[in-house]
Amino acid sequence: MKIKRNAERCHGCRSCEIMCSFHHHGCISPAASSISIKRENATGRVFWSVDATCDLCKGEKEPWCERFCAYGALKVAR
């Protein structure tokens, strides 16, 4: 299982980054997130990546990146 992003839906807001860091560390820090969102301001393109520290929010009902994404852009691919 892993998190998948629908690039069409993603608005590049990075709520997934911060809620991921909150799950892992109990604080807000994009640098400490499993997810990295990069926005290319000149083209409007938004890139994302997930590193090996993602545990799909073990202990939670659903991954917090998915739960707090307002755009329905993130889903666990089972």
Binding site: H11, G12, C13, R14, S15, G44, Y71
Partner: peptide, 10 residues
């Protein structure tokens, strides 16, 4: 359409 930081409205 793009969003500012952690914005659910966009």
């Amino acid at each position: 359409v793009l969003a500012c930081f952690n914005c659910p409205a966009g």
